[in-house]
């Protein structure tokens, strides 16, 4: 917070005004102004977010924190342990697949549904009904999403019943326990539960696109496909990028869904960074190493966030 008192010489343009005392005070106020608006946010985030994160960073440099009476500074030893653990690499690979596939599918499905729901052919009431149906998966706490899908996908569940009845599969498919199906299955569940957020944002974005652009495209004899790629997508690009970034960050820390459906199994086929960290912390009580893993995730996402902010800056 001390930075507020010593802002660097900014706003050079204002220097043209006479340096009267009152102006200087107003200038100071103007510089402090933004921090006045930001202060509730900063107070809250510093006390309740930055503090625990700093503590976690501290833990990551010590050994046997929390669970043992004495802990010592060990430098980056815990980081070494995490980075050389083959399971960590498996977790990174699975997480990237899980989050990447989820984000792409959220986008594709969200976009498809948004386009359909945005059609001018539909009346307001019809739209309202369908919109409500299409956001349903968003309304349920993740624990319920997990148990619901466990039920649906269980060997004697409704999904197997339907696929067998319609002859799509012979015999029982072990959706969640077959080592080769588990990761796609949990990814599918996450796609189901997460697409409405994308859909709603895209739907909103679609309504913000000026009709003139489509009319201009029509004059150029652009068909629906061409319109989509030359008008809709470029216009929505800022939303798509923001949503994709946020969705990616949120999906990488999806814990409850995976834990309650597969527990990271079978074997380690659905092990994610989140389940890996959880097991370190609460199954082996290795909070130091768990903290190191968390810090690695934090650094990776800070890089992502930095690229994003820079991209925004460049666009402005």
């Amino acid at each position: 917070m001390t930075t507020t008192l010593t802002p660097p010489e900014a706003r050079a343009g204002k220097g043209a005004e006479p340096p009267a005392a009152s102006t200087r005070r107003r200038d100071l106020l103007r510089r402090l102004g933004p921090f006045g608006f930001l202060s509730p946010t900063l107070v809250l985030l510093i006390i309740l977010m930055v503090t625990p994160i700093v503590m976690v960073i501290g833990y990551s440099l010590m050994d046997r924190v929390i669970t043992a009476p004495e802990s010592n500074f060990v430098g980056f030893e815990n980081y070494g342990e995490v980075l050389t653990d083959p399971v960590f690499m498996v977790a990174v690979r699975n997480t990237v697949f899980f989050a990447g596939a989820s984000v792409i599918a959220h986008f594709v499905i969200g976009m498809g549904f948004a386009l359909m729901l945005n059609s001018p052919m539909l009346g307001h009431r019809t739209k309202a009904i369908f919109r409500t149906v299409y956001i349903l998966p968003w309304l349920f706490t993740i624990a319920i999403v997990a148990v619901l899908w466990r039920m649906l996908l269980s060997p004697n569940g409704i999904v197997n019943y339907l696929t067998e009845t319609f002859g799509l599969s012979s015999g029982t498919v072990e959706w969640l326990s077959d080592p080769s199906l588990a990761l796609p299955a949990v990814t599918f569940i996450n796609i189901w539960s997460g697409y409405p957020f994308f859909m709603v944002s895209l739907l909103a974005g679609l309504q913000g696109i000026s009709k003139d652009l489509y009319e201009a495209a029509l004059i150029d004899r652009a068909g629906p496909v061409k319109q989509f790629f030359h008008v809709t997508i470029p216009q929505l690009k800022p939303i798509i990028i923001s949503m994709a970034l946020l969705d990616f960050i949120w999906t990488t820390q999806q814990f409850a869904l995976i834990w309650m459906t597969t527990g990271g199994g079978p074997i380690n086929r659905t092990e994610m960074l989140s389940t890996y960290t959880y097991k370190l912390a609460f199954a082996t009580y290795d909070f130091s190493v768990a903290s190191a893993a968390a810090v690695i995730v934090l650094v990776l996402s800070m890089i992502l966030a930095y690229l994003y902010v820079r991209h925004q800056k460049a666009r402005d």
Binding site: R150, S154, P155, T172, E174, L176, S177, D178, P179, A182, T261, T262, G263, G265, P266, I267
Partner: peptide, 8 residues
């Protein structure tokens, strides 16, 4: 053995 052992 009943199917689905790994996640039961």
């Amino acid at each position: 053995i009943a199917p689905g052992a790994a996640t039961l």
